[in-house]
């Protein structure tokens, strides 16, 4: 019994359902978020926070498109330095939150369609003129294509009919956005528990900050959600707005938009003249009441 026998037994190998860019993106996020669970990072953050915080209201002046009609983005606070992070207890061994012990937790089968509705509502509130359609990359597993805003489980071990706290899960949706005159882009939303995979948001001093990143700030909403807001411009000109949200209830939400239907890959070309949503709008979408594992 040798390698050749096994290879012959396996036959044709199907295309992988992941690529190196996706792994790097997930890796960056994991590293960034891991830093906040380490005692050393928490100590550093505690030193920063004694300088105090100031409150500010974000009104959409972040270089993105005008908001137009929609609900107001949440009021948020930020530290004096864009790279600082409010102090919070270190949590080197994440554990399910108390909410996991309550009865009648949703299952992924219930969660995913509800999240779709929540995103849809939030989009209408933030930018009603934004159109969405299926994205060519919204295919998982291979051969199974998903509708616009439809959530699907990419990885994790929580079973579709089991309570959401019974295992890790990674639920995402990817859609093509369209705005008259401006063109088409990409909207991606990922929701997952932050108590299984070291997933509180990171800070702007993280070593994972890339040369493509053009801005970064960490803010806290009145509800206690922390939001890492970043912008990036890739070689080739594709731009991205991204928010990584650590909700107070233990839900991690990432919302990104690119001005390209090809996503954030280096070397791609913009397919829109502007990003479809601002950081404020992304923050409002990601912190909408329904964007949680615990409605």
């Amino acid at each position: 019994m040798d390698k050749r026998l096994f290879d012959e037994a396996m036959g044709d190998v199907p295309p992988a359902t992941f690529d190196v860019d996706g792994l790097v993106t997930r890796g960056r996020r994991a590293v960034r978020l891991r830093r906040l669970t380490s005692p050393a990072t928490a100590t550093g953050a505690a030193v920063v926070v004694v300088t105090g915080v100031v409150a500010l209201t974000l009104t959409g002046n972040d270089g993105g498109p005008a908001t137009g009609v929609g609900s107001a983005p949440p009021k948020i606070t930020t530290g004096p330095s864009q790279s600082s992070r409010p102090s919070q207890p270190s949590n080197p061994t994440p554990a399910p939150p108390a909410l996991c012990s309550r009865p009648n937790l949703e299952t992924p089968a219930q969660l995913m369609p509800r999240l779709r509705g929540a995103v849809q509502q939030a989009l209408i509130a933030q930018r009603p003129s934004l159109g969405v359609s299926p994205h060519p990359k919204a295919e998982y597993p291979t051969g199974v294509r998903h509708e616009a805003l439809e959530f699907y489980q990419v990885t994790g071990d929580v079973q579709v009919a089991e309570p959401i706290c019974s295992g890790d899960g990674y639920f995402m949706t990817m859609s093509t956005t369209s705005v008259p005159v401006e063109g088409e882009g990409t909207l991606t939303v990922i929701v997952q528990p932050d108590f299984y995979a070291d997933l509180p948001p990171g800070d702007c001093e993280s070593t994972t900050v890339t040369p493509e990143q053009t801005s970064c700030e960490l803010v806290t909403t009145p509800d206690g959600d922390t939001v890492l807001r970043t912008t990036a411009r890739m070689p080739g000109g594709v731009r991205q707005n991204r928010v990584d949200i650590d909700r107070a209830d233990g839900t991690a939400v990432m919302v990104t938009v690119e001005d390209s239907t090809g996503g954030i890959k280096p070397g791609g070309s913009p397919t829109a003249s502007a990003l479809p949503l601002t950081l404020d709008q992304l923050t409002a979408i990601g912190t909408a009441p329904g964007m949680t594992l615990f409605p």
Partner: peptide, 17 residues
């Protein structure tokens, strides 16, 4: 194969860290 891809992806993300 789908589970295999999940396992490899998880492994590679851990490796990245």
């Amino acid at each position: 194969w789908h589970t295999a891809d999940d396992l490899v992806a998880i492994t590679m993300v851990k490796l990245y860290r």
